[in-house]
């Protein structure tokens, strides 16, 4: 066994030194390499997860905002449509009213004109009749003065004239 140990070149002092060195290496690598790197990885993962979550939240917010704006626009459009419809209706009603009123006015005017014209006509006819009857009387008087008695004739003439009218 001694020869084997010698053949393998074992030296207790060197082995203890290597044991201690290796232990130090384990500790130092843990303290200065593995732990910081693993912590860093964890931190980065957290950050990435947060970033992804933020992005998702932003996206959903954007989506809801878009939907809301769309809804608002559609509602506004609908309201605008209603308003226009109403305005149209109102305008139509107003138009109708105006037209009706105008028609009525025109009719009234026409009636009034017609009445005036008829009155005028009546008056004219009466005037003409009176004129004609007086003319007739005068002419007949002139004509008949030589032949007839004035009183009886006058009556007859008046009667004729009346019948004529």
């Amino acid at each position: 066994m001694d020869r084997l140990i010698q053949a393998l070149g074992l030296d207790v002092r060197i082995m203890i030194a290597q044991f201690i060195n290796f232990s130090i290496l384990v500790w130092v690598l843990w303290r200065f390499a593995y732990r910081p790197v693993l912590n860093m990885l964890e931190e980065r993962q957290k950050k990435i997860e947060k970033g992804v979550a933020d992005a998702q939240a932003a996206e959903t917010r954007l989506q809801t905002t878009t939907e809301e704006s769309k809804e608002i626009i559609s509602q506004a459009r609908k309201e605008a449509g209603i308003i226009i419809e109403e305005a149209k209706k109102k305008a139509e009603g107003r138009y109708q009213e105006i037209v009706d009123k105008a028609q009525v006015d025109i009719k009234k005017q026409i009636d009034k004109e017609k009445g005036a014209i008829a009155q005028e006509k009546d008056r004219l006819i009466a005037d003409v009749k009176k004129e004609i009857s007086s003319l007739l009387i005068i002419s007949l008087e002139k004509f008949l003065q030589e032949k007839m008695d004035s009183e009886a004739d006058k009556k007859i003439i008046e009667k004729i004239v009346k019948d004529l009218a």
Binding site: Q18, N21, I24, L25, V28, L29, F32, A33, P36, V37, M40, E43, R44, K47
Partner: peptide
């Protein structure tokens, strides 16, 4: 050579610790 590798790993880990960035 064990000593040199040991030293290199030690110094390397110090440098790594110092230069670790996100």
């Amino acid at each position: 050579w064990f000593f040199w590798v040991w030293l290199a790993l030690l110094i390397g880990s110090f440098i790594l610790r110092k230069n670790l960035k996100l």
